[in-house]
């Protein structure tokens, strides 16, 4: 077999392409962003469930919420703390965005960092940014 060189060259090219994202992003590491809470959210101190839980599970919470609201017309969430909340992402004061009124500082910051692009805002209207 005289293809040794070809195989080695191929392997090198493959390795270069496969590791390209690492080379490309070297030295560009950004610190993990901390989402900024609005005044209202700070004052409320607690979300519908404890902070750590919301941090990791908010997408599941929203997914279940949207199902029960749209499909069962249930609109009230009784949290594990015993408090009742209006289940809604973006409709007015009594909604997620009513409290977390700054989408850019709250949602986008982490979503951009994690490079996720949830399609919530294709339909739901985000609160106007305060300039």
């Amino acid at each position: 077999m005289n293809d040794k060189n070809k195989i080695v060259a191929g392997l090198i090219i493959f390795a270069a392409i496969a590791t390209f994202p690492f080379w490309y992003n070297m030295g560009k590491a950004v610190p993990v962003p901390e989402p900024k809470l609005s005044e209202k959210a700070k004052a409320a101190k607690v979300c519908v469930e404890p902070k750590e839980f919301m941090k990791s599970e908010h997408m599941q919470v929203l997914d279940v919420w949207r199902d029960v609201v749209v499909r069962n017309a249930d609109r009230v969430y009784l949290s594990s703390s015993g408090k009742e909340y209006n289940m809604s992402l973006s409709s007015g004061e009594e909604s997620c965005m009513g409290c977390h009124s700054d989408k850019v500082e709250f949602c986008d910051k982490c979503h951009n960092y994690a490079s996720v692009d949830p399609y919530c805002w294709d339909c739901h209207i985000a609160p106007k940014e305060k300039k």
Partner: peptide, 22 residues
């Protein structure tokens, strides 16, 4: 909190299986 978390995950698991509302 652990308990609510567990039950919530269970709930999520069930709803994503598409078993419906009840």
């Amino acid at each position: 909190m652990e308990k609510s978390r567990r039950s919530f995950l269970k709930l999520v698991g069930i709803s994503t299986l598409g078993l419906g509302a009840s």
